[in-house]
Structures are given as C-alpha cells and as structure tokens.
C-alpha cells in the first residue's frame, strides 16, 4: 500500500488526509504543534455565511478515520529521495519512507509590530483582526483597555499586504471581507457605535461577499472611506488620533477613535523556506511556494511526488483551501496510479 505524508495539520492537511484515507492509502498527518486545526480553530464565524469555525474543524476531526496516523508535536528536519521514495527524518529522531508528500503548512499572520507607525504593541487600544476574532468567542461587547465601551472603532485594511515598505506586494485576499464581517459583528455588539473601514480597494470577489458589503452599508451604517492610514498617535486619554486622505474627495481627514483594528495579512508560515530547500521546490517573489503552473497544475510542483495544498502556495479563503486540498488528493491518487 502506498504511503503518503501530509505536512501541516490545518484544514488543508486534514481535508487531504480525509480524502486520501477514504481511498485506502496509508496517510501520515504531521503537525508541529500539539493540536489540529491550524488558524481556523481560533476563528469565530466564517464569511460569508457566518457559520461556525469550530464546527468546521470539529467535523473534519471526526472525519479523520482511525486509519490516519496523526503525529503531533513533530517537525521534518531532513529529507532524502531515492527510488521514487522520500525518506523523512523527524524531530523526535524517528524516520519513515513515503511515496508522496503534500505540503500543507499554510501561512502565518503578519506581525503587526513591523508596521510600527500603526502603534501595535505600543498603544493599548490597537489590536489585530486575529485578536478581535478570538475575542468574539466571548459574547461581550467591545471594551477599550480602560474598560470603556468602544463607541468609535476604525478598521484598517491591508496591514502587511500590498505594501512594499514591509516587503509584501501581494494582496492577502481574505482581509477585506473579514473586515466587513467583523465590522458588522462589532455593530451588533456595540449598538450605536460609529464604525469606520479605511480601505485602498474593496476586494469583494467571491460569492455573497458583495451582499455582505451591501448589508454592512444599509443595515449597519458602516462608514467606508477610501484612504490609507499614514500614522497613529495616542491622546492623553489613550484614545487614538488618526490621519488619512479621503482619496475620493482629495481632502485630508482627521479622526479620533477608541479602538483601532489592524487587518493583518498572510505571510508564508515560518518553515516555508526550509521546506522549499528540503524538497527543492521554488518560491515566488511573495515567498510562498510555487506550483508547476498557476492554471491546471496548481497542486503539482517541479519535483515528482511533492504536492501543494492550501495557503502554502499563497493566500486562499477557506472554501478555496478545502477545494485545493481535495484536488491535491486527486493529483496524488493519479500520481500513485501512474503506471
């Protein structure tokens, strides 16, 4: 029986494992942390249908058959390739030989400290979208660090994305619609609060995203302003003073808010470069791994037996990630049945 290693136990890795074990392959799912579910297990609700993130992850875990060998707290440190097989050497000293490998190591969130002028980890009321999403797990309204109800909140798009100053020219794809979703949720929890979204472009590309935007405008009165934040300063009462240009009017804007939410983008996961060297897979100028091509071979690499799924090859929505993982599973199946 052919043996497959899936490196990365987020939703992409789990989905591929579910599909391949259903095809009766011997699947080893390798995750460096001690829990499955990657980033998604920390989210509250998923756009655009506001379904539960926890439920999705739990459903996947339930579908992982007993036949999937789950290895937690383990990393790949070395790899060798002979006779169409890869031998992987793990951090616990063990090793094993596989016929195919899927890389599903995903992304890491942009560290907002690197955009210093936005004041994250300097001013107490500047938070990231990921922190807000985790906070939504409680059912409380949004409070400032001084325990005042937040009455004015600004969301800042493209933090760590589309920004040569931090070395990331690409769009992270999911943060626009996440901002709209989070703004609506904030409006539900803090009725009467003034909520601003500052964007460069609103990328509502997928099904029902535009509906969410429409609802945010008409039902929640969210204020969309086109312009990029230049810098933040803190007032003596620890509120935040923001400077923008209203690029549609061509006029400078000033605004004081209680809280600032930074929509942090995606960067390749910490070990992406190491995996690229280990398996000799090229990276793009965005430092995500490159598939064989961007059209019909999105799951293949230029190396035999090495496949990609999910955000390891660039930012994706959850729907796209799951589809990508299923498609990778089929590519692995075809590869193992090639003769």
């Amino acid at each position: 029986m052919s043996k497959i290693a899936i490196i990365g136990g987020g939703i992409a890795g789990m989905e591929a494992a579910i599909r391949l074990s259903a095809l009766n392959f011997e699947v080893h799912l390798i995750e460096k942390s001690f829990i499955l579910g990657g980033h998604v297990k920390n989210w509250h609700m998923l756009f655009p249908d506001l379904s539960s993130a926890t439920q999705l992850v739990e459903q996947q875990k339930n579908q992982l058959r007993d036949s999937v060998n789950i290895l937690l707290g383990i990393e790949v440190i070395r790899a060798s390739y002979t006779n169409n097989k890869y031998t992987l050497y793990f951090s616990d000293g063990s090793s094993n030989t596989f016929d195919a490998i899927i890389l599903t190591t995903g992304f890491k969130l942009f560290p907002a400290q690197r955009k210093e002028e936005y004041g994250y980890s300097i001013y107490s009321n500047v938070i990231t979208s990921a922190e807000l999403e985790e906070y939504f797990q409680t059912d409380k309204p949004l409070y400032t660090k001084e325990h005042r109800i937040a009455e004015r909140i600004a969301f800042i798009h493209c933090v760590g994305s589309r920004d040569d100053k931090v070395g990331n020219r690409y769009c992270s794809k999911v943060c626009c619609v996440t901002a709209v979703k989070q703004a609506m949720e904030t409006a539900r929890r803090n009725p009467g609060a003034e909520i601003y979204l500052f964007y460069m472009d609103l990328r509502m590309f997928d099904r029902q995203f535009e509906d969410l935007y429409f609802q945010a405008q008409t039902q929640y009165g969210i204020r969309f302003i086109r312009g990029r934040l230049s810098e933040v300063s803190e007032k003596p009462d620890s509120r935040l003073f923001l400077k923008f240009e209203d690029t549609l009017l061509g006029k400078p804007l000033r605004l004081t808010t209680d809280m600032l939410v930074l929509m942090v983008g995606m960067e390749p996961a910490e070990n992406t470069g190491q995996l690229a060297r280990l398996f000799n897979v090229p990276v793009g100028n965005d430092k995500f791994l490159l598939p064989k091509n961007l059209h019909q071979y999105r799951n293949l690499t230029n190396q035999p037996g090495i496949f990609l799924a999910g955000c390891v090859s660039g930012p994706k929505t959850i729907g796209e990630t799951l589809t990508d993982a299923r498609s990778a599973a089929l590519e692995v199946y075809n590869y193992l049945n090639r003769n």
Partner: peptide, 8 residues
C-alpha cells in the same frame, strides 16, 4: 490652506 476635515 489644506483644510483637513475633522471627522470628530
């Protein structure tokens, strides 16, 4: 004058 708009 640049006339910034004060949203406050």
């Amino acid at each position: 004058s640049s006339q910034p708009i004060d949203l406050d």
